Amino acid sequence: MLPEGWEATTLGKIMDFRNGLNFSKSDSKNLIKVVGVSDFSLGNVLSRADSLKETYVDQFKDDDLLIENDFLFVRSNGNKSLIGRCLYFPYVPEPISFSGFTIRGRLKGCSISANYIFQIVAGEYFRKHINLSGSGTNISNLSQEILSNTPLILPPLPEQKKIAAILSTWDRAIEGTEKLLANSQQQKKALMQQLLTGKKRLPGFTGEWEKHRLCDCCHVVMGSSPKSEFYNETGEGLPLLQGNADIKNRLSCPRIFTSEITKECQLGDILLSVRAPVGTVSIALHHACIGRGISSIRVKKGNSQEFAYQYFLSIEDRWERLAQGSTFEAVNGDDIKKLTILLPSFPEQKAIAAVLTTADEEITALESDLSRLRQEKKALMQQLLTGKIRVAV
């Protein structure tokens, strides 16, 4: 039953669609910017054209260009999860066209709030709906027909505007938190580059750092997978950590147990993924059996486990050079044990680790804030966009 004053319609009744264009390079002086699928990673709203690719074309018509309040949808992509994703253009600062892998949507009249429609088509529910339209499985190409037949319900225009304004408040809070998080992550990265290499020293510390092989300062255990017939879900034996599938938020999160114990890790050990993706770092929250996709690392006496953890975080992206094999990437025990590491004194290790751990805590708090804001907006959308909660106009 529709809320009072609301209207059932389809996207095709309020919006015209046009497939994108396949431009070929030209020697002409007609330079325009073109939105491609890669630009959809910038977010759901595009108001700046700085990062768009430029191309020279022989000629183009006015209808080849985007205008204020246009929408673009991903029509086709190898990554099916991107199909149906939307970009909204509240402002178009210069001539911009759109590529052949997109579909443009343009509102037909002024009785529809573009911001309200944006809240619908940029949402997770909308993408899931159009991806499952027709066959019940993910589509490989989005068509104008699928878009046109997408049902929606519309409140009167004043209510549309009020709902859009409320949801936009959450969008601004989410965007602000995303920026704070990105800044904190960048600052942490810069701190790691300075503090973990000795380029920047904390107050009160002097003296040369010493170079060591990892096997001289850490115990390294390479995992070995038990036989599958010993796997169980009843808690018999130890939790089994096989690889990245058993890691969540950089903490061990085992799915099954094994009664055959091969190699083990202890609570607090550093866990290093040694099979694709190589180099991912986490911490063991369990005394567990480790399979061949995991290596556990624990420092020897006189060194800081927290410093070692931060060090491995700092070199996560370097392991590809050590990866072996054509079917999947992997590193072996010798690769890890021969790794060289510069170490300061134990007190300096602890001080550096404390600074970087504080930065991690700030990042975790911002990630928690961001998750909460997204959940709040999602719940609010379910109420406001269905009319379950009405707004005062």
Results as ranks from 00 to 15, higher is better:
63 D>C: 09
43 G>Q: 07
29 K>F: 01
68 E>S: 12
103 I>L: 01
110 C>H: 08
30 N>K: 15
69 N>C: 05
70 D>T: 06
54 E>A: 13
53 K>Q: 15
67 I>S: 15
35 V>C: 04
36 G>K: 15
26 S>G: 09
108 K>I: 15
78 G>V: 04
124 E>C: 00
43 G>D: 12
97 S>W: 00
77 N>E: 10
32 I>K: 08
50 D>L: 03
31 L>R: 14
82 L>D: 10
106 R>I: 04
93 P>Y: 07
100 G>S: 08
34 V>S: 05
54 E>N: 06
61 K>F: 04
115 N>F: 01
30 N>V: 12
96 I>D: 13
101 F>L: 11
65 L>P: 11
80 K>Q: 13
56 Y>W: 01
87 L>P: 03
92 V>M: 08
27 D>K: 09
128 K>G: 11
89 F>I: 07
56 Y>F: 09
120 I>S: 13
118 F>I: 05
87 L>V: 03
33 K>H: 05
34 V>E: 06
77 N>I: 09
67 I>E: 15
127 R>T: 09
39 D>M: 04
115 N>W: 00
120 I>P: 07
77 N>R: 03
19 N>I: 01
110 C>K: 12
85 R>P: 00
30 N>S: 14
96 I>H: 07
94 E>M: 10
122 A>F: 00
71 F>E: 07
107 L>I: 15
36 G>C: 08
100 G>K: 02
100 G>F: 00
113 S>R: 09
21 L>H: 13
56 Y>K: 14
64 D>F: 10
98 F>G: 00
93 P>S: 07
22 N>Y: 02
26 S>W: 03
58 D>A: 10
30 N>M: 11
92 V>H: 06
115 N>Y: 00
29 K>G: 10
46 L>Q: 00
119 Q>K: 14
61 K>N: 14
114 A>N: 13
104 R>A: 04
47 S>C: 03
99 S>W: 01
54 E>R: 06
78 G>L: 02
18 R>I: 05
26 S>C: 06
81 S>H: 02
71 F>C: 11
20 G>R: 11
60 F>S: 08
46 L>G: 00
99 S>C: 07
78 G>M: 01
29 K>M: 04
103 I>W: 00
